[in-house]
Nucleic acid binder design. Structure first.
Lengths: 97, 97
DNA sequence: TGAAAAAATGTCAATTTCGACATATACTCA
DNA sequence: TGAGTATATGTCGAAATTGACATTTTTTCA
């Protein structure tokens, strides 16, 4: 996976251009939630605008979520998944590794 | 569970003092992560200050995380759990319901 | 007991994330 | 093709979250 490719940066003094294991896992978790959110929305035949309305947000923010933009919180991803009635079991399946 | 008891507030016009299912699930998820983080830290015999160092944060913020303070993000909770080497399986077990 | 360590609580300026908007690019299908 | 729809990208001020700090309260244990 090419994390450097799309805007991910880490502020670490001791490890230049080197991500710690936690940082890598954290990013991978977010990307997994992003990917699953997009798949789930599409399988429900909803537009980004539809989902945006459901979570009281905007189409552009949904696009950023699905693009795995670093400036999107796990909180917003989880809220979106919950809005799409994602079950505990499905969320568990989204955890990387 | 008494959510109203400790600072949780919801901004909804149509539902006064009434939490939507997603909002309730979201809060319960955070509280579950909080509870598990505290248990995990204690079982590892770490102080809040120890954990704070590990995640480059402060003791007071760790205390707020563990207290289930609404003004703490899932992002920080997840980063903390990852710092404590929490496995995918364990995280899955933390999901409410 | 009581002093030291740990945890809880409150505050605040700085940083991050937010929704919103504008606009560009990519799809769909008549 | 091209018009309408969906998605992607960039920006911005507002709102939420942050680490840090001071202080109080609780727990530990000699």
């Amino acid at each position: 996976m090419k994390l450097e490719a799309s805007g991910w940066k880490i502020g670490s003094v001791d490890e230049f251009l080197e991500l710690s294991q936690e940082e890598t896992e954290f990013i991978e978790l977010k990307l997994s939630l992003s990917k699953n959110l997009k798949e789930r929305r599409q399988s429900l035949r909803l537009t980004q605008k539809d989902l945006a309305r459901m979570i009281h947000s905007s189409q552009s923010r949904v696009a950023k979520m699905e693009a795995g933009d670093p400036a999107v919180s796990i909180d917003l991803l989880v809220k979106s998944l919950l809005a799409l009635k994602t079950s505990k079991k499905e969320v568990a399946g989204m955890l990387p590794h």
